[in-house]
Simulated scan of single mutants.
Amino acid sequence: MKNNIISLTLLLVLSCNSQDKRPLVGKTEYQQKLNASYKDASTSPLKKKDLKNFKGLDFFPVDSSFMVTATLIRTENAPTFQMATSTDRKPLYKEYGVLKFNLKGKDLELTIYQSQDDLRDEKYKNYLFLPFTDNTSGNESYGGGRYMDVMTTDIKDNNTILLNFNNTYNPYCAYNDRYSCPLVPRKNHLDIEVKAGVQVFEKH
């Protein structure tokens, strides 16, 4: 009987501990990681009052039709330029190339950029920056547009790359105006509703 009581106590303790470690919120690994970073006060862009009530970001339903193969046309001898931001900050970028793809039956293109500051950072030197707006911007998604990270290492030998619009995110400015965020160039507007990725954030 004593052993049974000890076993039952251990089960209750283990059960309580497992409940404390709640599973990460999100339908995909990408969503879970993004939610985890926003929930962590050391990495979150959220204001304190929003962080206190944070349960997870809102996403459009995951939709495989928003995963498309794009052809990259590299921009040769692209000049360095100062990209406009939501503040006076002017980070240095270069056009890396133009991505051409078909989405929902429409032929579209986006210009992709390379941060010149990131080139000096071992952690981010392979990152490319893909900002865009679409016909959900300002309604179901953030008015300032969304971003997608693309890796140079994911570009195939035939200059094609998979774009997954389910893995898009908002600029930090969507959550907190103390951040400085690159503005989406006008030419990177997609005349289509991209109902994939993160949705507009409801501030408290």
Rank of each mutant, 00 (worst) to 15 (best):
S42C: 01
K100A: 10
E193N: 00
D20S: 12
S65D: 07
I161H: 08
D134Q: 09
D20T: 13
I192R: 04
G145E: 10
D134I: 04
G145L: 07
K49H: 11
Q199H: 04
D63C: 03
G105T: 03
P23M: 14
N166W: 06
Q19C: 11
N135C: 14
A70K: 13
T133F: 01
S37D: 08
N166C: 10
K27G: 02
H189E: 10
K52G: 01
A36G: 02
Y179Q: 07
I73E: 11
A78K: 02
S115G: 15
P185H: 06
N17A: 13
E109K: 14
K2A: 15
D117V: 14
N135V: 08
R186I: 01
D63V: 02
L11R: 04
N135T: 12
V184D: 01
Q114Y: 01
F132E: 07
K48G: 01
K94W: 02
D58R: 15
K2R: 15
P91K: 01
C16L: 14
V68A: 07
R186W: 01
L10V: 14
N176R: 00
P61F: 08
Y96S: 09
L162Y: 01
A174Y: 11
G105I: 03
C16I: 14
K39Q: 12
F66D: 05
L162R: 11
D20Y: 11
L24I: 12
